[in-house]
Design a protein around this nucleic acid. Structure first.
Lengths: 152, 152
DNA sequence: AGAACGGCTGAACGTCATTCGTTGTGATCT
DNA sequence: AGATCACAACGAATGACGTTCAGCCGTTCT
């Protein structure tokens, strides 16, 4: 069940690390980087996709260039069980991540907006979600780095 | 003008949204999705890369499949200015993100490990960073969603 | 108005993704 | 042990796609 299907060996990890770095490179290049032919590299990557280890190929974007220069983490307190509130949080487009957490708050969300005014508006909308009783927003002043999950 | 950035227009945003969804699709397909020829779509995407709006093409991976099933956010308290500590945090491979934040703590990090034991070990290593005086770890019980920055 | 600029189209060309038959290897069965 | 099976990698063939470019059109500037 869930996601434990199949094994991911060292070559798979090396392939994933390469793809995380640059998913546009040719399979011949990719194969050379891990000591495989183009065909074999292609085959392994295809299987990694089929098994859901690689979820998708996507692009990393500069948030500032899209007018999402304000980043904040918000601890959401609740007076009820929030386990089924996925859709409510997903409906707020400025929310980039939402997690149920252990501890006093019950949900932690990562929010990106253009301005702090818009951040305030997101907080207002959070309060309209059933069960939400409070929020504590923490604004990010500077991001050191954001990087992919370590593959090796 | 959408969100206040003149160099990224609505077609660019549509292209980015499509690429975030699936960066493997052909430029002909991509162009059709936004009402452009393959050549024109290619040209715009190339320029978005050159300008740094698109930082890179990468793959999204299932953390559990890589043995990084434990996710935690750690508030790091400090007794000194942490503005130049990028490298110290980057040196800890389990740290996926590190941000300087406003408020009582001074750094917020996102950590992925295989086990809670390993999480504890990361906390121990955080204390060895110059200026770090305390940590508050919050373990994620369930992730609702993690998605790309909204492009439109 | 004329010129210059920027962006789009459609086609041509070269590269690469994708498929497939073959081979080698390590495990399982008799 | 020998035979069989399952799996993975190789290397070549082919068809698709990325990439480039000349020509065209709408806009802006003088």
């Amino acid at each position: 069940m869930g996601t434990g299907n199949g094994i991911v060996d060292d070559v798979d990890r090396a392939l994933i690390a390469e793809l995380q770095r640059d998913a546009t490179q040719a399979y011949a290049t990719l194969g050379k980087a891990v000591g495989l032919s183009a065909g074999a590299a292609h085959d392994r990557v295809r299987k990694l996709r089929e098994r859901g280890v690689i979820r998708r190929t996507t692009v990393d974007v500069d948030p500032t260039a899209l007018g999402r220069g304000v980043l904040a983490f918000v601890m959401v307190d609740s007076s009820a069980w929030m386990g089924d509130a996925t859709e409510s949080f997903a409906a707020v487009p400025e929310i980039q991540e939402a997690h149920i957490i252990a501890g006093t708050a019950s949900v932690l969300v990562k929010v990106r907006t253009a301005t702090t005014d818009q951040l305030q508006d997101v907080l207002r909308r959070l309060y309209t979600i059933e069960g939400v009783s409070g929020t504590q927003a923490t604004v990010v002043l500077e991001t050191f780095f954001e990087r992919p999950v370590r593959a090796d």
